[in-house]
Design a protein around this nucleic acid. Structure first.
Lengths: 224, 224
DNA sequence: TTGGCGATTGACCGAATGGTTAGCGGCGGC
DNA sequence: GCCGCCGCTAACCATTCGGTCAATCGCCAA
């Protein structure tokens, strides 16, 4: 370790404050997410960010402050705009899309999902802001589902006549069940298409499998 | 706390080794479950058990050993014998009983369930034995479900004709979803009777509400 | 009485931990 | 030239951690 401190380096030096702050955040993100809060030491973060420990405390007053910064950073990809890509679809397609999106997102962000879940289960006091944001996210998703189901029922598309709230609640429970199954059993246990088909059958009394051709896949936001 | 150290006490003194060992285990159980492994120090355990820290290390070689002892102790109530009380029922009643039992158990042991879940999500290496045991428990439960569903299908009780494994898997996912909903939302969000009714409808094509208990959901009227 | 043994303890240890501080290089403004 | 500030660091600090150790206490057998 140590050694090779750049002196007259040309373009390498991560200089402008913001740069080092980012490096720290990235390192902390990685470590916190993989080891957790208490098991990650500031010295480790410093080492991984190739920065002195003191600099971390110059950027962030306390370890907790760094932690919530990391939380917010990790939460960013969770806030996406669903409305845009669902504008022209009918309710049924939108619901399918919503379900599929949920599962694909979980699959693509399994590690951070696992981290958030563990964090919220464990010390909810440390992550109150996390709790709030996740709750907001969750109830937003639920509200969309309720709205869509109600609308589908109004149009007669949906054969299930349960209260939209109850149906949405059950659907969400099923999705959460798949989520934890995925977190523990791994990819082989969860397949989004199967789940979508299940939803189809349950909600629309339909058992046809969606076409294997175009349509689904390709989430709009960022990496895949 | 403190004070009143018995000297010539009559029946009180926690004496015979096993006694102190138990006191330690109880304290550790409480602390580990509420704060977690890394956030609980041996000194805390010692203080809560009113015992010297060294004595803990006399009973348990390391902190990890104490921890797995606590894990096993906390796991005890999870191993129960279901067969006895389901002997005389038909498959449908058994499945209902199984589902109800799952949910009631979660409700009654929420804190340890939460602890186990968080623990397994977080550092799975520390609790490999836990992972194994929970997995065994889980697949046992799943096997019972599969068996029951298959049997019910054979007898023509079950209207759903999906593969028993798939049906059981979906059922388990739903249960897990309810579990995490309960862990986060609290009691008001989960009602076992409603869930049993939902299973009835889904698995047996039946919509009758057993007793006169719970409120709305699935009113049975067909109009939109 | 004595001696041995299981149970129990206070004092101690080195290695971390989160956090602080004094200071250093370099750069823009005067 | 030099002053002040920003970004940054090595060294340091108090505290706590898991774990050890020598010494004791109580009790039962010889």
């Amino acid at each position: 370790m140590g050694a090779s401190q750049v002196k007259s380096g040309s373009a390498e030096p991560r200089a402008q404050s913001q740069d080092s702050r980012d490096e720290i955040l990235k390192a902390a993100m990685h470590l916190f997410a993989n080891r957790g809060f208490h098991e990650t030491s500031m010295s480790e973060v410093a080492r991984e960010a190739r920065v002195s420990k003191a600099l971390i405390f110059w950027h962030f007053k306390t370890k907790e402050e760094l932690f919530v910064a990391v939380l917010n950073r990790l939460l960013e990809p969770y806030f996406i705009d669903f409305a845009e890509e669902a504008a022209a679809m009918d309710e049924r397609a939108q619901i399918q899309k919503l379900v599929e999106f949920y599962l694909l997102f979980v699959r693509d962000n399994a590690s951070s999902v696992r981290f958030f879940l563990a964090q919220m289960l464990h010390d909810q006091h440390l992550s109150e802001s996390l709790n709030d944001q996740v709750l907001k996210l969750y109830s937003g998703y639920r509200a969309m589902l309720i709205e869509l189901i109600a609308s589908a029922q109004r149009k007669g598309i949906c054969t299930r006549n349960a209260a939209p709230e109850a149906a949405a609640g059950f659907l969400l429970s099923a999705l959460n069940g798949l989520l934890i199954e995925y977190l523990f059993m791994g990819a082989n246990a969860v397949d989004p298409e199967g789940a979508v088909a299940m939803v189809n059958e349950w909600l629309f009394g339909d058992a046809s499998a969606p076409p294997s051709a175009s349509s689904e896949h390709q989430g709009g936001s960022s990496a895949a």
